[in-house]
Structures are given as structure tokens and as C-alpha cells.
Amino acid sequence: MSQTQIRFSGSGGQGLILSARILAAALAARGKFVAQSQAYEPTSRGGLSRSDLVVSDREVDYPLVTSLDCVVILDQVAVAASEGLLRPDTVTITDAARVSAPPGEPRRVLALPITGKARGIGNIRVANIVALGALAELAGIIDPDSLRETMLDLVPPRFRDLNAEAFDAGREMAATLENA
């Protein structure tokens, strides 16, 4: 049985749970079974926040992650929580500015200027969507165009253009990296 495990993590308020919800919705709409769990600290900003997806072609047995295929880390505070779940081939995407000490052991860590790009677009709060775009391009779990469609359905209409720009910027950033 093929199963994929994905984590979005960072600090509270970065919108990581929304990123996970968008990806989960897109996967469910395409016939996958998804189990999404989350953990956060009792503060509205700051503290470790993460949301995990277990994706399968059938009903998921164990709904929590045990070994990650992909992980997005947008803040240093979230690094330790994933250390024990990483494999050498885990696609590990970190924010270049906010993760100064990425997970150890020899593995390919893709440090991308995610929050920097979001700030450049005009709103640091879309960093979660920049990250989603980058993940879509790098992880090979879903067609990025169809994920983009679901994303635009789920964000408030007045923020559609901003989020579209953020998603495309994330994809482009990742594509450049892949070609390098």
C-alpha cells in the first residue's frame, strides 16, 4: 500500500494548518484518503505549530505520521519536533531566513527564501502559500495546477490574486532550484 506522509510546521500564526487543509482538500477531491492531524500551543502567535497529513489510496490505518516523505519548516522552533521523523530521502523545505540551524544528519535541505518572497509580494502572511507552491513543485504528490485551483476556492475571494501570486512564486522558486 502506498502511503505518503507530509508535515507543515513553523510557529503559531504562520498559517500552516491552512496550508495542510488546502492540500488535504485537493487530495480528497482527487480520490485520495487523507488523515490530517495538528498540534499547536495555547497561544495565538508563536510556539510550535504543525499539521500532518497521511495520504493513502484507501482508508488510512494509523492516522499519525511516523516517517515523513516531505516536511516544510518555516521557523526554527519547529526543527526539533521533526528530527526523529526524517529519512535521508525526506524532501525537507526550510525557510532560509527563519531556520538558522536546519535538521542535522547528512540530508538535502532545501533552504528557500519563503518569508522573504512573501514580504516582497506585499504580505508576509502568504508565506504559507508560497511554501505550498514550493512543496507542490518539489514533492510530486499532486499536480500543482489542480492544487492551485483548490487553493483559490478555499481562500477568501478578496485575497485570491495575492494568494495566486504567492503560490506561483513558490513554484517558480522551487523550479529554479530543481534546474540548478
Binding site: 487543509r21 488535504a24 487530495l27 485520495k32 487523507v34 488523515a35 490530517q36 492531524s37 495538528q38 492516522p63
Partner: peptide
């Protein structure tokens, strides 16, 4: 709690 807060398809 794990199942109560779990989101599933």
C-alpha cells in the same frame, strides 16, 4: 482526543 481532533476524508 486523537480521533476527535483528526480530520479525515
Amino acid at each position: 482526543e486523537t480521533i476527535g481532533h483528526l480530520v479525515e476524508t
